[in-house]
Amino acid sequence: MRIGDLFNKFATPKRVPRLFALILGLFLIVGFLVPMALNPDQIYPRLEPQVQIEANDPAAPYDRGGEVLHSPGITDSQYPQYEPKLGWITSYVSPLAQFVMSISPYFGTSIYSSPGGLIDEILYYTRGFDTVLESSILMMAFIIASWLSINYTMNRKNEVENIQKDVKIAISESDRVANEISKSNQKAKRKQMRRES
């Protein structure tokens, strides 16, 4: 087989994602051989989750320490010169979340904490633009999906061209049927004439 044919076969749109997935999978397996070491000097640190859970902290994995308006929490950001009020407020808790926190020690690991019950203020303060971008990606995905589901681009039934074609087909069909009917009428008439004569 010539190499041009081989390339043409690879370039078929249907085969491209499959080939890509295969190559990506092989590359990820190579990743097991690469030495991985976590840098201990990370930005936005917090205590180990187990330490907080053992201390019976209801906001367990999300607690960044500190006391509101008294002492700043654990913070270590890249450019503290741009963030003069970093760490003074570490998170916001909604009234419902406060109630759950008062009756349960497992608030941080429950579902209340993620969708707006507890807002991690440090991340919003330092990386606010990221959260804007993330939600705009989601919004665009929803806009595209809803546009497609309303307009349904695969649906060809209501297009003018197709309607014209359908009308033409219907006209020729009805012409054919009318012809057949008139022919059989004539036959029947002839038969009757023969009988009468």
Binding site: F129, D130, E134, I137, T153, R156
Partner: peptide
């Protein structure tokens, strides 16, 4: 000037590219 921001921009562009062409009939 932020790596994570750049990846977010890239995935936004990817999804918009699909959206622009998916409205073709």
């Amino acid at each position: 000037g932020d790596l994570y921001n750049l990846t977010l921009f890239m995935s936004l562009i990817g999804i918009l590219n699909i959206g622009i062409i998916s409205s073709v009939k």
